[in-house]
């Protein structure tokens, strides 16, 4: 054995191991952090590694048949709870998105009318016994809401508050025959009042009454609140004129209005609790 340590073979072994150590030091201090040996080996080894990865990819399905069913059951359970969680998040997301849209719609109105005091509210129930789709909001007198406060979505009229509780309020929409709003048509500047009938309400329409036979209101005209009466601020949009019809009881004419917003589908609204009306100013 002593002769081995004196032999050329042993010296060669020591030289090789020393060179490998130096390679490690070079790798530690160079920017690529790779020793020369590893770099060369990488070039040779890469096709083999690719082949191995390809084999694994092709045999993954076959390997799956050796996995116990209990493991799959556990995975299915986990995935089902993930799905439930994601569904909840999706619902939350849609709700938040709708809220954001209503806030964005209201932002422009608030900028133009800084005197408006607004309370945001959500529809929490619809009165199924009411033929005219009155809704209940989740805010009440504790939020400053009072009877006859207007309810809007952006700059579009939804209805008016008719009952107020501490934490809720009931809103009658523009599709309720008992709701009358002073309005005017913006092109012709003709004024009237908006209300509806049972048959029009069923179709989701209301009307602008009080027009003379010679009215210049035409289809396509936009009907807005006039601010008279003090319940509604001026220039909130009620809807668009679709057609003119003659009253059955007298010689006057009325314009059928399609509301700007589907009042039955809105969930997030704003209640105008205070504003400076034209009457006051």
């Amino acid at each position: 054995m002593k002769n081995f340590f004196k032999s050329t073979k042993f010296k060669v072994i020591i030289c090789v191991l020393t060179a490998l150590l130096c390679g490690m030091l070079i790798a530690a201090f160079t920017s690529t952090s790779e020793s020369p040996v590893t770099s060369i080996a990488g070039v040779i080894y890469k096709p083999f590694q690719k082949a191995a990865a390809y084999i694994v990819e092709k045999t993954q399905d076959w390997q799956g048949s050796f996995v116990s069913s209990s493991e799959y059951k556990e995975q299915v359970k986990e995935l089902e709870s993930d799905i439930l969680e994601y569904n909840e998040k999706l619902v939350d997301y849609e709700r938040t998105k709708q809220k954001l849209e209503s806030y964005e719609a209201m932002l422009g109105v608030k900028n133009e009318n800084p005197d408006y005091e607004l309370v945001s509210a959500s529809v929490i129930s619809k009165n199924t016994a009411d033929a005219y789709d009155s809704v209940t909001l989740d805010k009440g007198s504790t939020s400053g809401i009072e009877v006859n406060d207007p309810v809007v979505y952006g700059e579009n009229v939804i209805g008016i508050v008719k009952e107020v509780g501490l934490a809720t309020c009931v809103v009658k929409t523009v599709l309720d025959p008992s709701v009358n709003i002073s309005v005017y048509e913006i092109k012709s500047r003709e004024s009237g009042y908006s209300n509806t009938t049972a048959s029009l309400s069923y179709e989701g329409l209301c009307r602008m009454s009080g027009l003379s036979k010679e009215t210049s209101v035409a289809a396509g005209g936009i009907v807005c609140t006039s601010g008279l009466g003090g319940n509604f601020p001026r220039d909130l949009v009620v809807g668009t004129v679709t057609v003119l019809k003659s009253e059955e009881t007298d010689m006057s004419v009325y314009a059928v209005i399609e509301p700007a917003v589907d009042v039955r589908a809105v969930n997030d609204v704003f209640v105008i609790t205070d504003f400076i009306s034209d009457v006051e100013s």
Partner: peptide, 24 residues
């Protein structure tokens, strides 16, 4: 040395260590 070099291609940590160790 050859086997260690192939191992170093895929391993993290000190580069060249596996080549040295397996050669040794």
């Amino acid at each position: 040395l050859i086997g260690g070099a192939f191992w170093d291609v895929c391993a993290s940590g000190i580069d060249g260590f596996h080549g040295f160790y397996l050669a040794f």
